[in-house]
Design a protein around this nucleic acid. Structure first.
Length: 220
DNA sequence: GCGACAG
DNA sequence: ATCTTGTCGC
């Protein structure tokens, strides 16, 4: 595997490849969600990818993969832990989605290379980062209404690296940032559109559900 | 040295 | 991530 130093060098190198402009087919047909489940008493992790019809939000395909975690959880090196099962699940997909939404950060990362960037650059497809909690960057003045947005600013150079987004009135925001081949504005709009009734986008919720099932099935 | 720290 | 039911508040 990678040493911590090697992993950081790789991030610094690959981060140069991130594309922050919209590069996907105009009428978006399929949107995917990714998530990774953990087992509480083993090292097993399950990667899960679900493909939804962008307009109807109907589930079109599910792909999962269970394996042993090969890298520890280190804030900032998260992708080295969760990428392996996600790539395995990706290889099983028959439908190639137009856009992915990862349950983690993209550019809103200390080296501007969170899991959403690493995954996106690796598969060379559009990816949005949508984390449940903040990793890097500061924000203030986020409104209470659904649809409120506050810029996430990097503390090291003041760069606008993401958005804190209120997907439901009075509920904690999610943190949206560019993964690859999409703009922050487009990414933010898509996350809001996919978060119709809950805090998290449907893509993430459904991926989480199937990941849980896959873990159970694998253990039995 | 102390606090922060995606899942 | 995970341990975990009812409960406080709008």
């Amino acid at each position: 595997m990678w040493s911590v130093d090697e992993a950081i060098r790789l991030q610094e190198e690959l981060s140069k490849q991130v594309i922050v402009a919209d590069q996907f087919s105009d009428p978006v047909k399929y949107i995917a969600g990714t998530d990774v489940e953990y087992d509480k008493d083993t090292d097993l992790i399950a990667g899960s990818i679900v493909v939804l019809d962008y307009l109807t939000m109907e589930t079109m395909e599910v792909a999962t993969h269970c394996m042993e975690a090969a890298f520890p959880y280190i804030p900032g090196l998260f992708s080295f832990r969760e990428m392996p099962p996600l790539l395995k699940a990706f290889e099983k997909l028959k439908i190639i989605p137009d856009i992915f939404i990862c349950d983690a950060q993209g550019l809103a990362h200390q080296r501007r290379f969170g899991l959403a960037c690493h995954f996106g650059v690796t598969i060379n497809l559009p990816v949005i980062g949508c984390g449940k909690t903040r990793l890097y960057g500061e924000y203030e003045g986020l409104g209470i209404e659904r649809g409120s947005i506050a810029p996430l600013m990097a503390q090291d150079n003041g760069q606008h690296i993401g958005n804190a987004v209120r997907t439901q009135k009075g509920i904690n925001p999610v943190f949206v940032s560019v993964g690859h081949k999409i703009s922050l504005e487009t990414a933010t709009g898509i996350v809001l559109r996919m978060s119709t009734r809950y805090r998290l986008p449907e893509t993430t919720r459904i991926a989480d559900h199937y990941g849980r099932l896959a873990m159970e099935a694998y253990k039995n």
